[in-house]
């Protein structure tokens, strides 16, 4: 622990001292530590992605789901019924009809490259950031739920009631649609998404555009399956073991 802290301190002081260097060459130095300077806009040179090895998820993703709830504060709606409660990520149990083979996997927004939810949204509230993260801009979401109709992964929820005490990093409110946003607040701060930190043995987060990133390397070597690959949405979330 102390070793990491001292590393971190050295790293930070180095960064502060060479602030000029950072601004001149942001990509080169910071890419590998997954952070951009806080006051610089995100760039489309990056495409964030996630790899989930479901064979290593001993709990089928329960820990990820708990971490997500804790991070974003969904799942304790007072009035909504079970069908109306928001769920950003869920554990899906799949049983193949003929063979009876079963598996469990966490399913959330797959962060499609060509996202149907973005196409159908009349106001542009359903949006894809330059770095590939798909999210809802709740400021301009009118709550028409067309994106929920369009999403092939059933990844979106509608907030059916007034909320209080939201997480500061995750504004959520009545009458808007929401979904997994790959923890943009954490990613922008150079952290991993909460679910990845909750199951580091099975999940990997990184830049799909950077061929030297871990995720790109393992995906190049072993591939990664998309759910409903037939729709050719080129998802940012890939799986092993499905």
């Amino acid at each position: 622990m102390s070793k990491i802290d001292s590393y971190r301190r050295n790293f930070l002081s180095g960064l502060a001292g060479t602030a000029a260097a950072v601004t001149i060459a942001p990509g080169v130095f910071l890419r590998e530590v997954q952070a951009k300077p806080a006051d610089e806009p995100i760039s489309d040179k990056v495409r964030w992605g996630m790899l989930i090895d479901i064979n290593k998820l001993s709990d089928g993703g329960d820990a990820c789901i708990e971490a997500c709830k804790k991070e974003h504060g969904w799942g304790d709606e007072k009035h909504s019924n079970d069908q109306q409660d928001a769920q950003w990520i869920r554990k899906v149990k799949v049983t193949e009809k003929m063979t009876g083979k079963t598996m469990s996997l966490p399913v959330m927004c797959q962060h499609c490259e060509t996202a149907p939810c973005v196409d159908v949204c009349p106001t542009g509230a359903s949006m894809k950031r330059a770095d590939g993260i798909v999210q809802v801009n709740k400021h301009i979401c009118i709550g028409c739920r067309y994106c929920m109709m369009a999403c092939p992964y059933k990844a979106r929820s509608f907030v059916h009631e007034t909320l209080v005490d939201q997480r500061p990093g995750t504004p959520r409110g009545k009458g808007t649609v929401e979904s997994c946003n790959m923890c943009v607040n954490r990613v922008d701060a150079g952290k991993n998404p909460a679910c990845v930190d909750a199951a580091p043995e099975a999940m990997l987060f990184g830049d799909l555009n950077d061929e030297n990133s871990q995720i790109s390397k393992v995906l190049k070597q072993y591939g990664g399956t998309q759910i409903r690959a037939d729709l050719e949405l080129n998802t940012g979330v890939r799986y092993w073991g499905i």
Partner: peptide, 25 residues
Amino acid sequence: LGSIGHVIEMAFGYINFKSIFAWNI
């Protein structure tokens, strides 16, 4: 609509012309 107040902002803001809804407006 869930957030009817945001419709006013939409009238002055961006409209996504890839959306059938936007076409329908």
